[in-house]
């Protein structure tokens, strides 16, 4: 697993995703306002709230109880950035202190000049990143005023060659898989470099067109399956069929 996937791991526990391979807790689809479970000892986690004795869904998704914690895994909706998210974005403007990056959210990201891996003259910023260039970066901080990005770290930086496309952001944890198992399977079977942003944007670069197209197809296949168990096995079959 490369550094980039480690970065994903820092804030998300992938062991809870359907691909885990282990016997996972039962998941049920819930709608907002629905009672998920009742009991004084339960802890309302992400996407839930407590009302008296009940834990109630605050959003649509898959409800899951692990130990005492009840939470909701989202299965749809727009991307909302959080600290440490890896995102793929596009340089949309250059200002005196850094680059404005469109990260496909309601607010642009800001990449400060000092995040450049080498010294850059303020007048030659487009030599490093020009408008329209694609980057992979990490969300450093989120505030109502700005979303600051960082680009130091393995796997982060300007994207050279290859191509980008988008999947549903809520499918990203599945596409990565537990400890990067799914993405590694795709890399092994196609020989492509793959970077997946939490904002749903994916970058692929391979040796030849056919493998690049196949890697994308594989990722789109996973992204469209909501909560299939044993997805890793299904993907192994898929690759066997799509040789």
């Amino acid at each position: 697993m490369n550094e980039l996937n480690k970065a994903h791991e820092e804030y998300e526990d992938f062991s809870s995703y359907p691909d885990s391979g282990t016997e996972s807790a039962t998941r049920t689809v819930v709608v907002p306002g629905e009672i998920i479970a009742s009991g004084e000892d339960l802890l309302p986690g992400e996407g839930t709230r407590r009302d008296g004795n009940d834990v109630i869904a605050s959003r649509f998704g898959l409800a899951e109880k692990v130990g005492r914690v009840v939470k909701i895994i989202s299965i749809s909706g727009a991307f909302v950035p959080r600290r440490n998210n890896v995102v793929i974005g596009r340089v949309s403007d250059i200002v005196h202190s850094g680059w404005i990056i469109d990260i496909d959210y309601a607010q642009n990201g800001f990449l400060p000049l000092m995040e450049s891996p080498r010294f850059i003259n303020k007048h030659e910023m487009d030599q490093f990143l020009a408008i329209g260039d694609m980057v992979s970066a990490k969300v450093w901080s989120v505030s109502p005023k700005s979303i600051d990005l960082a680009m130091k770290g393995k796997g982060l930086g300007k994207l050279e060659g290859g191509f980008t496309f988008r999947v549903n952001p809520s499918s990203v944890p599945r596409v990565i898989g537990r400890e990067g198992s799914m993405i590694n399977l795709i890399k092994e079977n196609t020989g492509c470099n793959v970077t997946i942003g939490q904002n749903g944007w994916v970058w692929i670069k391979g040796q030849d067109l056919d493998n690049e197209i196949k890697a994308r197809k594989a990722i789109e296949f996973i992204a469209e399956k909501f909560h299939v168990s044993g997805l890793t096995e299904k993907m192994e079959e898929w690759f066997a069929k799509n040789k």
């Binding site: 907002p32 306002g33 959003r59 989202s74 909706g77 727009a78």
Partner: peptide, 11 residues
């Protein structure tokens, strides 16, 4: 709105 994952008290 629910489908879009917007936090809601209820439908």
């Amino acid at each position: 709105l629910a489908h879009a994952g917007i936090p809601m008290k209820n439908l």
